[in-house]
Amino acid sequence: MASTQTLSPRTSMTATTLRTQRAAKLKHAVPLYLMLLPAIAYFVIMTYYPLAHAVLISMQNFRFIGNRPFVGFQNYVDVLSDSEFWSSFANTSILGAGILVIGFVAPIVIALSLNEVLQSWLKRTIQMVIYIPHLFSWVVVGGLWIYMLTPDGGLVNTVLQVLHLPQVQFMTNPNLARWVLILVTVWKEVGFNCILYLAAIVGINPALYESARVDGATRWHEMWHVTIPMLRRTMKVVGLLSIMGLLRLFQQIYVMRNAVIEPKVDVLMTYVYDKGLQQMNIGQATASALLILLFTLLLTLITRRLVQYNEL
């Protein structure tokens, strides 16, 4: 405090300007804070507060009724020394990588190809149809694909038979089953991401196309030099979103797994599920779920280093 009083007039003046500048900045930002307030309040109450509670649970020998002794990091140690956890981790990485790559490219290809359809009624119909699988729960979609792929009476094998091709046992061959899970996941969610790209394409300034056309660009050139570059921001967002959801892969595995393929397709979230709901070990289930959060954070950080998310 004493030092501020002995400041020279010049420095104190700069300090005041800085302060007024900062005050102006803050004042300019007040409406922005107001706009963010409901969202922040929601996350504090409904996400971070429960999260803190979850961290507590993960350090307890959790019981439904009665006291819950504090056990420190024991639950984490137990999970991390469980070989099942690590094999689930490996499976998650393999399935996740497949879904990430194919699931990233597919909606872009479809959106671009849909953009080339000139008849607007056809465009709208296709756009709607592609979204249909997203409306069904995984229980329905998973059951349906199991039927489609069964060796006896399944649609796919019937077609193969008609074409005189050998029959394929999709769901009892672990390596094929992985591909099935990857492709079915992409198939179900492609319409969702496709809509994001279509909305972005809709938002592209038509003037850009006009000037490209003036320069004599073909449609191929337009797509390559106008549309795709303008989708870059959406691509980044979609990519980041998929990475953040990667380790939470669950429903499709849960619905479509069977004993023969389980060692190759069980993922981290099925591990959490088995621990929590089947073995009623809430402490370890919560600890493993929080580890998934930790891994996701790391993964996201790495991605943000590699891809320049300067604006995020």
């Binding site: 963010l36 969202a39 922040i40 996350f43 109450i45 409904m46 996400t47 971070y48 507060y49 429960p50 999260l51 509670h53 979850a54 649970i57 979103l241 953040m244 959801g245 380790l247 939470r248 979230m269 959490v272 599920y273 929590g276 809430i282 289930a285 919560t286 779920a289 929080l290 998934i292 959060l293 996701t296 954070l297 996201t300 995020l312």
Partner: peptide, 23 residues
């Protein structure tokens, strides 16, 4: 604030299901 919001998207619901119920 951006990071604060981004992190919420990475939380598996199973981790916080019981606490959310309590809330």
């Amino acid at each position: 604030l951006t990071v604060f919001i981004l992190v919420t998207m990475m939380i598996p619901f199973e981790a916080i299901m019981i606490p959310v119920y309590v809330t």
